[in-house]
């Protein structure tokens, strides 16, 4: 079981209607070293094991393949790959795969199935109502993870900004690349929004919804996101994406 404190993230502000991105806590920094599972990353009691690391006697070892990050005494490994593991408070995008008598079963691209009960739906919905009129089969929904229990995930759409997605396109990226797509305090995603004029919501599970005025701007936003995921650990990526978007928008 994943430790409880890892789930507890800072409650986020919900100001703008669509501005529901969480700060990824990402900082652009020096070149990081790639570590492999089992590799000794620090020796001695002066270091503390953080995320994806473990103490083994005198040594601290990496437990995942990724980039090593040592901040003063705290060691951690930033994973490069892996499936999405839901955490409480995450904003996710999912697809309605089933409707039960008291809610919806939603595929959030994770090993655990997610459930959205009708009481966690906006407004009052009776069990007698036709649930497919609210969220129908195959529809994409933005929701927030309420909690993670042994076998499943509970979702909510009660707050502002959570709804079903009727138009636009969905792009899928690796969930470990999401912090880069969002950027420091949303800098990257705001940059793409600014240049393409698209409305973008990035789910923590790696599904990204893009809705623009026309298909060209949506495709441009998708291209920019693809560029971010492919060059995710290049220095000064924000500037490079800006250059790319500037060059592309100038043509028109």
């Amino acid at each position: 079981m994943i430790k409880k404190q890892e789930f507890d993230e800072q409650p986020q502000e919900m100001d703008g209607g669509m501005d529901i991105h969480q700060d990824a806590g990402y900082e652009e920094k020096k070149e990081r070293r790639i570590v492999v599972p089992g590799e000794v990353i620090a020796t001695g009691q002066n270091f503390l094991p953080g995320e994806n690391t473990k103490r083994d006697g005198q040594n601290i070892i990496a437990t995942r393949f990724g980039l090593l990050d040592i901040e003063e005494r705290l060691t951690k490994v930033i994973p490069l790959s892996g499936t999405y593991i839901p955490r409480r408070g995450n904003v996710v995008i999912g697809k309605v795969i089933d409707i039960t008598y008291n809610g919806w079963l939603i595929d959030i691209d994770s090993p655990y199935s997610a459930f959205l009960p009708i009481i966690e739906c906006k407004g009052f919905v009776s069990k007698k109502d036709d649930l497919s009129l609210i969220y129908n089969y195959g529809e994409m929904v933005i929701a927030k993870v309420l909690g993670v229990k042994g076998k499943g995930v509970d979702l909510t759409t009660r707050e502002r900004g959570f709804h079903n997605l009727e138009e636009g396109m969905i792009v899928r990226v690796n969930s470990n690349k999401v912090p880069r797509v969002i950027g420091k305090q949303g800098s990257m995603v705001n940059l793409i929004k600014e240049y393409t004029g698209c409305n973008i919501v990035v789910g923590q599970n790696g599904l990204i919804w893009i809705k623009g005025e026309n298909i060209e701007s949506e495709l441009l936003a998708r291209e920019a996101i693809k560029m971010i995921t492919e060059k995710s650990f290049v220095e000064g990526l924000t500037d490079k994406v800006k250059e790319f978007l500037e060059a592309k928008t100038k043509d028109k």
């Binding site: 599972p37 437990t63 995942r64 990724g66 490069l80 790959s81 892996g82 499936t83 470990n176």
Partner: peptide, 11 residues
């Protein structure tokens, strides 16, 4: 397994 990001203590 390492490439898939599975947590493991060793190779």
């Amino acid at each position: 397994l390492a490439h898939a990001g599975i947590p493991m203590t060793d190779l």
